[in-house]
């Protein structure tokens, strides 16, 4: 196939992949620390998309401004959910946490279905269809912004985890809970901070998506399925793995869409998922058990 088609497809794949990576980042962080898959991640993304949608619709706030309100708000929401709902309901058992997040996702999605109906909605922003030429391809400006912000968030998250005391405490709790408790780390606080960071990631992703995407009560599920693939591909709990895995999955999806037709683009992701599970179950950057 001609390069003038191939290069734009790869670049577009990278742009999509970065936002996938951002969603996967939240999922992998929570998995790495709490050792559970947060089934409410998709519902939280949907809620964040609706929040960004209504902030634009009702308050006239641009999503790129709303992100500065929504990311701290979702951090607080995630913190409170873990600290006051999931944590207490789990009674210290990981399988309970799993069920509680599953239950939460059902409640959140159906509440949105009830209040907002099943309609698919979009917002109009002046830059929604702007493009810039990059390496012979015309790339969408909002999706370029999405790429830049997603990579920036990944780098900031990495810096937080490796440089700050709170970040080090998160990594400590992930691997050695008793040792962390005996060092004076408040484990339930760290769990809640981690959950809050995961929620903040989806809030940022939502603000990056909404200018070029749509929202309905089930939109988050599709993203989280892809994000879960990325988490496994990159290595469960690995931040660099989520970033690289996300970009990779974006490109695979885009190329499969190119060769097999747009509607079959995601087949490549799941084929790759099966191959990874067969040949490298610990993921690209994951630690072997």
């Amino acid at each position: 196939m001609h390069l003038t088609i191939l290069i734009p497809a790869i670049l577009n794949g990278l742009l999509t992949g970065a936002v996938y990576a951002l969603i996967a980042l939240g999922l992998t962080l929570v998995y790495g620390v709490l050792h559970i898959i947060n089934f409410a991640h998709g519902a939280m993304l949907t809620a964040a998309l609706f929040a960004a949608f209504f902030m634009h619709k009702l308050l006239g706030l641009d999503p790129y401004i709303a992100v500065f309100i929504l990311s701290p708000a979702f951090f607080a929401l995630g913190y409170a959910l873990q600290r006051f709902v999931i944590g207490p309901a789990a009674h210290g058992s990981d399988s309970n946490i799993l069920l509680v997040t599953l239950g939460l996702s059902v409640v959140i999605e159906n509440a949105m279905l009830h209040f907002f109906r099943a309609d698919t909605r979009t917002i109009d922003v002046p830059y929604g269809f702007s493009v810039v030429p990059v390496a012979g391809a015309y790339l969408s400006v909002p999706r370029l912004v999405g790429f830049g912000v997603a990579v920036l968030v990944a780098v900031l998250l990495w810096a937080l985890l490796t440089r700050s005391d709170t970040g080090k405490a998160i990594r400590a709790v992930a691997k050695e809970k008793l040792g962390a408790e005996l060092s004076g780390i408040d484990v339930s606080h760290i769990y809640a901070v981690t959950f809050g960071l995961g929620a903040a990631c989806v809030a940022i992703a939502a603000c990056l998506l909404i200018p070029t995407y749509y929202v309905n009560p089930h939109v988050g599920t599709g993203f989280v399925l892809v994000a879960f693939t990325i988490v496994v591909l990159g290595g469960m709990g690995s931040i660099p793995g989520a970033l690289i895995g996300g970009l990779f999955v974006g490109v695979v999806e885009s190329l499969c869409g190119l060769y097999l037709g747009e509607s079959l683009g995601q087949i490549g992701i799941f084929l790759m998922f099966i191959l990874v599970l067969l040949f490298r179950p610990s993921g690209l950057m994951g630690e072997r058990a």
Binding site: A172, A174, K175, E176
Partner: peptide, 12 residues
């Protein structure tokens, strides 16, 4: 309390 089995953070 320095626990039995050290309980250091192996990944750090």
């Amino acid at each position: 309390h320095v626990p039995e089995g050290r309980r250091i953070f192996p990944n750090m």
